[in-house]
Amino acid sequence: MDATLAEQQRILASDWGGGKSPFGTSWSKFMMWIFIISDALTFAGFLIAYGFMRMTSPSWPKQTEVFNMTLITFMTFALISSSAVMAMAVGEARAGNPKKAVKFLTMTIIGGTIFLGCQVYEWSHFIGEGATLTHNPWGVPQFAAGFFVITGFHGFHVLTGVTILAIVALRAAFGKYSADGVENAGLYWHFVDVVWVFVFAFFYLL
């Protein structure tokens, strides 16, 4: 009996025994990471399905000719820049400077909005040229389907991110901010940036 009790106490005292944080984060931040990991798997599924469709298709359009790469590069610039100022917003929130945090959050929201505006323009142009989920004027329909599903799902994430950041910024402006809240929103925003890095490389350039 004593041996069992000692074993139980040994387990409880370990990092994984409960009552401690094996990952060294607050629960909300850890849950955000769990969400990011599961969402990353969703996008991984999309991109691998895209690769499969592309490799099994008899032909594939040359993306650098079909897309306006100047616009796509500018969209990438906007998202990377917004990610950099988001990191600064988290730093200011942690340092207890809500005014500066709100300023950087606003800049992040502007970057995200510019990205969304460019995506709306790109989609409308693409649709105007006759592309739909089932039809592609440049060849195999899977190309247009992949475009709408992957960039649409990512764009929905950007829209969600802008909404979350707007709520966090408003709360911070009224003094209701928490550094954890800003950081969790920041993690989500950086994740959206990470996904775009993959989409930019594998969908638009490869």
């Binding site: 490799m55 099994t56 032909s59 594939w60 359009p61 000719e65 790469m69 440049w138 060849g139």
Partner: peptide
């Protein structure tokens, strides 16, 4: 599966 059936024809089109 994908590599076995790939033809890798890249079509060219008028640029944007």
């Amino acid at each position: 599966d994908a590599a076995g059936s790939a033809t890798h024809i890249i079509e060219t089109h008028p640029s944007y």
